[in-house]
């Protein structure tokens, strides 16, 4: 199983119910419901999926099937500072992979993971429309351009002044 059992608070279950209701509890709206829920919670833990399944009267297996099919949906919570490395064509040919490897090395984590302290999560994305700045890295809403492997340590330290 890919997530640890969590207990949902009353306001959280209410929120999911409201989202499902806003889509008329229609089975065909599953993807929209999942989008909204992920927007609210940052990720889609098993308990949220079970609740959605119950509300839309479909099996939890089906909900999980959709969540695991689309890479946009995530079952792991994003870190406080989500790091995304663009691996679109332009960034890739200008060395995004070496930048990515440096992040993995410095943070000691793999793509798709969230550090146990909850500070950072690491993901790849395709093209943010800033190819002139390639390779591009985003941390939360902030964008870094022309990033070289040597810059990585400095970027991380901006968010953790005390060091790792």
């Amino acid at each position: 199983m890919s997530s640890v059992k969590i207990e949902l608070r009353k306001d959280q279950t209410d929120k999911i119910h409201t989202i499902c209701d806003s889509f008329g509890n229609q089975e065909g709206e599953l993807i929209n419901v999942l989008h909204k829920s992920q927007e609210t919670f940052g990720y889609l833990p098993a308990e949220v999926q079970e609740l959605i399944a119950e509300k839309l009267e479909i099996s939890a297996a089906k909900v999980y099937g959709v969540v695991t099919f689309y890479s946009f949906f995530s079952m792991t919570p994003k870190g406080e500072f989500p790091i995304s490395i663009c691996t679109g064509t332009a960034c890739y040919v200008r060395g995004a992979e070496t930048v990515l490897n440096e992040f993995k090395k410095q943070l000691e984590m793999e793509v798709g993971e969230t550090r146990t302290d909850g500070k950072f999560s690491l993901s790849c994305l395709r093209c943010v429309g800033a190819c002139g700045l390639a390779p591009v890295v985003q941390v939360g809403d902030k964008t870094y351009g022309r990033v070289a492997p040597d810059d990585v340590k400095g970027i991380i330290e901006e968010y953790l002044p005390a060091g790792l």
């Binding site: 099996s59 297996a61 999980y64 099937g65 099919f69």
Partner: peptide, 10 residues
């Protein structure tokens, strides 16, 4: 209508 099985991952 048991719903135990579904295709998952891709």
């Amino acid at each position: 209508t048991v719903g135990a099985l579904h295709a998952v991952n891709r």
